[in-house]
Each structure stands twice: as C-alpha cells, then as structure tokens.
C-alpha cells in the first residue's frame, strides 16, 4: 500500500517535471521502428505528421484553457462549425472564407469565456453548453448534412494540401501555430499571467492581475485554434460537416494531459502538448497495426486519459475531487 503510493507520487512528480512523456514517445518510436523498420521515414512519416497536425492545433488551443485551470469541451463543435462555414462560403468568397470561419471560432471562444467568467458558470458546464449551441448551429447551417467542397472551392483549399520542399503545408501550419503559442506563453504578459492564474488564482487576483480578462483570452485562443483546426481538416477532407471533428475532443484533451500539462492548471505548455499529440498519433497507428477496430479507438483514448490524470494529478493540491 505504502509502496504503491510512493511509486505513484514518484511518477506524478517526475511526470509533472516533464521527463516521462518524451521518454514514452521515444519508446513508442523505437517500438514502431522495430515492428516496421522504415515506417517513420518519407511518405508515411509525412502522413503521420499531417494526421497529427489537426489534433495538435486543437490540443494547443485547449492547452491555454487547461493552464488557467479550466476546460473547454466546445472545441470539437467549434471546429465542426468552422468547417461548415468554410465549405459554405468557399464558392462565393474564395480565400476570404478562411478568416470568416476562424473569426467564428474566436467569437464562440469569447462567448464561452464570458459565460464562464461573468456568469460564474464552471468552465466545463459553460463550454458543454456553448458547445451544444455551436453544434446545433452547425447542424442548422448545414441542414444536417455534410457539405462537399466542390471543384470551384478546391482551388482555394489546394494550398493546404500542398507540400513545400517535401513538407506538407498542414504540418507547417501546425508548426507555426505551435511556435507562436509557445512564444506567447513564455514571453508575453498574458502567458505569465495565465500560469499564475492556473497555479494560484487568489494570489494572482490579489497581486492585481486581471483574472477575468486572462481567462477570457484563454478561451478566445482555444476557440480560434479550434476553428483553425476545423478549416484545416475541412480542406484536407474537402468537406465541411457538422460532425466533422466529433471524435477529436477526447484525443485532444488526452494529448494535453499525456504530454504533461497538469489538469489542475498552472503547469505545462505547448511543447508538452506537441509530445502528447505525437504519442496519441503513434498509439493510434499502433492500434491499426495491432488490428484494434477503428471504432474502438476512443475506448483506448478514454482509458489513456483516465490513467494519465490518475497518475499525474497532484493530490496535495486538491483535497476534494468533484
């Protein structure tokens, strides 16, 4: 009993210090290399990274919210809505459809933040509800169907599916988003203040930090990045659909936590989320190899998420888990 507790506290300590996730990733890469030499080169690697890109962008957005100690359950709905808006507007607006779809994500991110902060609704309820609203709007806009991006629209999306010097553009977009988010978290006032809010909100408030604004900005970023993930996904699949991103919420949150960002807030970052997203992607490939039914994937991700939180959560910080 005592030993298992010590083991857990040891794991949770070093996991939170960030040493375990990269090690886990390395182990997974080695396993894949042994099982299928040469898999992680050339085209298959490019495909793996492209598949990770959307998940990573989504997970990066929710990282901001988890860092302030909240959660955003609306991201899959926002991503789907953005895909619908993009698919509908592309024929008439061309490239301008992209900023419009992304702006929709920004607006709904701010809405979630405002509901959470001003109306004092816990973030999981606030975003569950706004997520429902957004999903409903996506269904309504799309009349409940997937909208194929026709030949005319594809002229405006083909750049996303292109490659530059052998690197898929989606991967470059993910790298750009990741780099900007990393720098923002580390070097901006907002980044520092969001860590402070997540790690100790009362102290941050007493130190004169505008806690409400910091939270709303985090939700706004989450919504915006969810929409970016949605349009990238739509461009890749040449389709916008109100259920396009429906299976991505769980893997995205799992990526953040498995990467080593604390679910309780205040500790973590985008670099860790990148590692977490890669782990999730490789696990997904591994499951395909092993022959796990594709529909059962979320069973695994759910279990992974529970295990990651159970192992990493710092129980000295919270006495009662609600």
């Amino acid at each position: 009993m005592k030993n298992s507790f010590d083991f857990r506290s040891m794991i949770s300590n070093s996991w939170v210090q960030g040493a375990i996730p990269p090690a886990l990733l390395a182990v997974l890469i080695i396993i894949v290399e042994i099982g299928s030499p040469g898999f992680l080169t050339g085209e298959t690697l490019a495909l793996l990274l492209s598949n990770t890109a959307v998940l990573f962008i989504l997970a990066t957005g929710v990282t901001f919210v988890i860092l302030i100690g909240g959660i955003d359950l609306s991201i899959q709905a926002v991503a789907s809505l953005a895909s619908v808006i993009l698919a509908q507007l592309l024929p008439s607006m061309g490239l301008l459809a992209f900023p419009v779809a992304i702006a929709a994500g920004l607006v709904f991110g701010i809405l979630s933040g405002v509901v959470h902060v001003w109306l004092r609704v816990p973030s999981f309820v606030a975003t569950l509800a706004t997520g429902g609203v957004v999903a409903g709007m996506a269904l309504w806009l799309a009349n409940g169907r997937a909208i194929t991006i026709e030949e005319g629209g594809r002229a405006s999306t083909s750049w996303i599916n292109a490659t530059i010097v052998g690197t898929p553009v989606v991967v470059l977009i993910a790298i750009g988003v990741g780099l900007a988010s990393y720098l923002g978290l580390r070097y901006s006032r907002f980044g520092r203040q969001s860590l402070a809010v997540g790690a100790g909100e009362p102290a941050a408030y007493a130190a004169g930090i505008n806690v409400d604004r910091t939270k709303i900005v985090a939700f706004a970023l989450s919504g915006t990045l969810a929409a970016i993930a949605g349009v990238v996904l739509a461009a890749r699949l040449s389709s916008g659909s109100p259920s396009l991103a429906n299976q991505l919420l769980l893997p995205a949150i799992a990526a953040v936590i498995v990467g080593g960002t604390a679910i309780t807030g205040g500790l973590g970052g985008v670099g860790r989320t990148a590692v977490g997203a890669l782990i999730i992607s490789i696990v997904r490939i591994g499951m395909t190899f092993v022959g796990v039914n594709i529909f059962a994937e979320n069973v695994v991700f759910g279990a992974v998420l529970i295990a990651a939180v159970a192992i990493t959560i710092d129980r000295s910080k919270i006495a009662i888990i609600k």
Binding site: R192, A196, A199, G200, P202, A203, A206, I209, G266
Partner: peptide, 23 residues
C-alpha cells in the same frame, strides 16, 4: 494573512512571484 493562498503563487518561482504585480 493567508500567505500561501493570497500572498504567493506557491508553484511559481521566487523570481516570477517578485514580478507578478508588475512585469
């Protein structure tokens, strides 16, 4: 009075706590 709750963000560093009110 509640130093650990309202005074400091205990999980941030000494340096980060010193610049908390004015970065």
């Amino acid at each position: 009075r509640e130093r650990r709750v309202e005074g400091l963000v205990m999980f941030l560093s000494v340096a980060e706590n010193i610049t908390l009110a004015d970065l």
